[in-house]
Design a binder for these strands. Structure first.
Lengths: 156, 156
DNA sequence: AGTGAAAATGGTGCGTC
DNA sequence: GACGCACCATTTTCACT
């Protein structure tokens, strides 16, 4: 998908909602000097275009028992079975990102685990048997920063 | 931070909000068979505890002009200056994650760029001069999956 | 901690420009 | 594409339990 044709108002809306997903439409309207109905229409347009894909609350992983965050690079025994491996990975709730990457690995994932033992358990019980030729892991001690992509107009 | 002491209702609320950050409190209340005021109180409690850290809308990166997603591992010339490097990285809006990792790298980041040229530009103009001894990059062609951490009660 | 009700605020559809 | 307005839903507060 290419860059969508969005105007200043669209970008302002996205910017505000990326900071606070529950920001009232009327508040956005006031800050943009337009009516609430206009914001309502814009948001529906952005949704139907697929630019806006919903919203999520932000949860502190450690508070809900996820102390370990890891990245893993995979080499597949049979790279043509990529889609099949993706489906099996999706079935593992601890896997939160899957990337198709250039160069170094066939596939790169991010996952959370309760602790290091749990991570090992996931690797042994769930990831092996997916037809992985080799894996490399990288464990994050601390996520120092986590934020959204910058939202700004082309000209900025 | 360790796992917070949360009960079934707290987990239900987090679960629902992690799927839809704008879900009305009254709807949550009805599904949990409690009053809207109770949900309101719980959410305030979860916020003040730092379990809930706000909400964000989900934006399709390509639609706002970010076609390239990359991960980079850094080796610092002087690892004791970690904090200083973190501050400088935070000033680069394209950098969306910073991790302190075990083993392989001193630091691991995720960043978005408009395209490969823009990525190279960021690496040359912004990342060099941070005192990096060596870097390794990994470019994501396609983010096949991106979702939240699983929210479930300890016993599940 | 939770409840119910009241007051304030917000979301949504529609006719109009 | 945006506006105003009307109607309904949601948020927030509060006295009470």
């Amino acid at each position: 998908m290419a860059r969508a044709q969005l105007d200043t108002l669209d970008y302002k809306i996205l910017q505000m909602l990326s900071v606070n997903g529950r920001k009232p439409f009327l508040e956005i309207a006031r800050e943009c000097n337009v009516s609430g109905a206009a914001i309502h229409q814009r948001i529906q347009k952005l949704m139907s275009m697929g630019v806006l894909k919903g919203s999520e609350c932000l949860i502190d992983p450690a508070s809900v028992g996820y102390e370990t965050c890891a990245y893993m690079g995979f080499f597949l025994k049979d790279p043509s079975r990529f889609d099949e491996v993706v489906e099996k990975l999706k079935a593992i709730p601890e896997v939160v990102e899957i990337h198709f990457t250039t160069g170094q690995y066939d596939m790169f994932i991010k996952l959370y685990a309760h602790n290091n033992d749990h991570l090992l358990h996931i690797i042994h019980e769930q990831l092996q048997g997916l037809g992985l030729a080799r894996t490399e892991s990288l464990i994050s001690f601390k996520e120092v920063l986590k934020r959204q992509i910058p939202v700004s107009e082309p000209g900025d």
